[in-house]
Design a protein around this nucleic acid. Structure first.
Lengths: 194, 194
DNA sequence: ATATTTGCCTAACAATCGTTAGTTTGGTAC
DNA sequence: GTACCAAACTAACGATTGTTAGGCAAATAT
């Protein structure tokens, strides 16, 4: 195939960039850093990508799509709000742990996106959080969850999970399901009216 | 006083830098950005500070000291683990909300510290987390808290709080005590054996 | 009144930044 | 064998980076 090597190289660039962006940050990582990490010259990168920011865009929006899709099936189900929240968190953690480095970049480097990408990104994030908020509101109206500030609680819940990529190592003693289970156990049993 | 104006200017530099570091990140903020934000030339900054990194060091270690001190009185008290955890979280949130911008920088820009400051910083952070972990362990041994992965839980707890500086605006509808109360309510009531 | 210090300035430095241009190389298609 | 093409290279660009040197004016100390 003609374009296969090129696609692979581009994918490799993105993966290596993800590692460096996580370790050093986007702004502190130069194209020369990235190139020498791969083993080529900086100028050669531009045979595969349009700009430094394009790399960040690909990392951020690919993951955004993954997060979005992970909720799709859950919202169609007919379970209680506690079940839905549980499943939503599991899905979220699964996306997180599938590529922890990309997740770390996603959560801490998005602000270096330029317009209009930045606005798009923030809209998607708000929508995503909104779907979690709706689960809490539904749970409250059906008497399962306490009355509380749903947005605040969702931010606290997601924040406690989203910090994970900073320390998660694949193959550790806690599997993605364990992590999601622990977190939702703490949160749901603290939220549920008893 | 001789040094008063100089100290004030230095303090102003640090405060303005804190704002820019929060908005743009440390690496993406140039000394010329900072200078023009203050209203002077970039070179003039060096009459007051030794280097760009010194600013970051001051921000990070000042806050680290605040966090450390905030726990001191609590650990000497004779309350139960649930009370201690509650108070520790309140203290933590109070430090956070006293200067949200500095807190945001503290949590996301520390990696740009150079050695030996970086190692010192991480050691302090580990010690601080360790004191929270100890509270959970004590609570478990005294039968108040479930058996769980204490380190994991503390990281989840602190992470859910530490994200706050990103969105907290002084004078909002939630006071520091409200925030700490909400978080600990969710966490403690989810943790306590019933 | 004079001497000293402070805080800013302009100018410039060496290094590094992202990126472009033009060229070479090695493999594939006709 | 020839034409083509992707992917690398070298070299360089203009801009920007953190920082230093040296000077100047105003405030302060003597």
């Amino acid at each position: 195939m003609i374009t296969k090597n090129k696609l692979n190289r581009k994918q490799q660039i993105i993966e290596k960039a993800t590692q460096l962006f996580q370790k050093q940050g986007y702004a502190a990582t130069s194209m020369r850093d990235l190139a020498s990490f791969i083993g080529i010259e900086a100028a050669s990168l531009y045979s595969h990508i349009k700009s430094k920011e394009e790399i960040l865009q690909i990392i951020c929006f690919q993951l955004a799509e993954d997060f979005f899709n992970s909720l799709q099936s859950i919202e169609l189900e007919h379970g209680g709000a506690d079940e839905k929240l549980q499943k939503a968190v599991v899905s979220h953690v699964e996306v997180l742990t599938k590529d922890p480095a990309a997740s770390a970049v996603f959560f801490s480097e998005w602000r270096h996106l330029s317009e209009p990408y930045l606005t798009d990104f923030l809209e998607m994030r708000d929508q995503y959080e909104g779907r979690f908020i709706q689960i809490l509101i539904d749970g409250n109206e059906s008497g399962i969850f306490k009355t509380l500030d749903a947005k605040f609680t969702v931010l606290a819940l997601l924040s406690s999970i989203n910090w994970m990529p900073a320390w998660y190592k694949p193959g550790g003693k806690l599997s993605p399901k364990d992590i999601a289970g622990n977190v939702t156990d703490v949160f749901i049993n603290g939220l549920r009216v008893r």
